[in-house]
């Protein structure tokens, strides 16, 4: 049988396959260059970058929880100018799509970062992180349809790149935010970011994380993330990129069947640096077995 077609389109951007490394879990790709074939990935989303350098939260910043982990990194990064100078030269040479994640405290900052990235050729798309639970005010834009739309509209005006809006699960109704992002000109939405959570050291009677609260990721969140992707995909026409606890190709397929056009792999990269590559191979094998020629046939094929 012929090789199945795994290509997917996110706005104007065509990806070799639907498996993407998630923001904050894959650095700028360079950290994993010796451990996996970066060129085999559908795309890499880089760690969220802010307008100015940001030092991040006090340690401890990560802790394992049952089937998951909490993190409170707090968007540590050197700022967008340093990102372009220090990280883009490597990323320009990687043979995969580069999606740059951006985060900010104001609508104008989002637009300014997007404007700077718009001039960089190898930036294939922008993921607007309106959903970071680990910085003060980081969640505000993701909470209300109006503020989410304001960010997307301003970034849309500042950049011609395909835009992906990354949504928070820590909201009343994630589908409303997704619809607002679509109306404001986003080319796709990605969900979910982490769920706010915490862990306590009962001996010290202190929070385990330096920031007290953090974001929960990993297999523990998968069923909730999947439900949110399913609900969201029914309500919007733009592509949905699904994530949350994907460890193997079976998890990825669940998201795709629920309505995702592509998936992002986060925590799994820590467990197995070849996780994304293994997932691509697994999806391909599944398609061969099920005689599915094009991955698009799978997106949203859920029978209810």
């Amino acid at each position: 049988m012929v090789k199945p077609n795994l290509k997917v389109k996110i706005g104007g951007l065509e990806l070799r396959n639907p498996v993407i490394a998630a923001s904050g879990t894959f650095g700028s790709g360079e950290e994993y260059k010796d451990l996996t074939d970066l060129g085999s990935l559908g795309a890499i989303v880089t760690k969220s970058v802010t307008l100015r350098p940001s030092e991040g939260n006090p340690p401890p910043r990560v802790v394992e929880t049952p089937s998951g982990m909490l993190n409170s990194i707090g968007l540590q990064n050197d700022g967008v100018d340093a990102f372009i100078k220090d990280k883009m030269p490597f990323l320009s040479k990687v043979k995969t799509a580069v999606i740059v994640s951006i985060a900010a405290h104001s609508v104008n900052d989002y637009a300014e970062i997007a404007g700077k990235l718009d001039r960089i050729k190898k930036v294939d798309a922008i993921e607007i992180n309106i959903s970071c639970p680990n910085v003060k005010g980081g969640l505000e834009f993701a909470r209300e349809p109006g503020s989410a739309a304001a960010v997307v509209a301003k970034v849309r005006a500042a950049s011609k790149k395909p835009l992906i809006t990354k949504l928070s699960p820590n909201v009343k109704d994630i589908t409303e935010i997704a619809m607002a992002a679509e109306d404001a000109g986003s080319d796709a939405v990605s969900l979910v970011n982490t769920f706010t959570g915490m862990a306590i050291d009962i001996c010290a009677k202190r929070p385990v994380l330096g920031n007290i609260v953090g974001g929960l990721s990993g297999p523990a969140i998968k069923p909730i993330a999947l439900r949110m992707v399913w609900e969201t995909a029914k309500k919007i026409k733009i592509p949905v990129i699904g994530m949350g606890g994907i460890m193997g190709y079976e998890d990825a397929l669940e998201f795709i069947i629920a309505g995702a056009s592509a998936v992002e792999i986060g925590t799994a990269n820590f467990v197995n640096p070849k996780a994304a590559a293994d997932i691509i191979a697994g999806i391909e094998k599944y398609m061969l077995q099920e005689k599915i020629k094009n991955i698009k046939e799978l997106t949203g094929c859920l029978r209810t």
């Binding site: 650095g27 950290e31 991040g56």
Partner: peptide, 8 residues
């Protein structure tokens, strides 16, 4: 491997 910035 220096990607997640967790062990600061």
């Amino acid at each position: 491997v220096g990607a997640c910035l967790g062990c600061a």
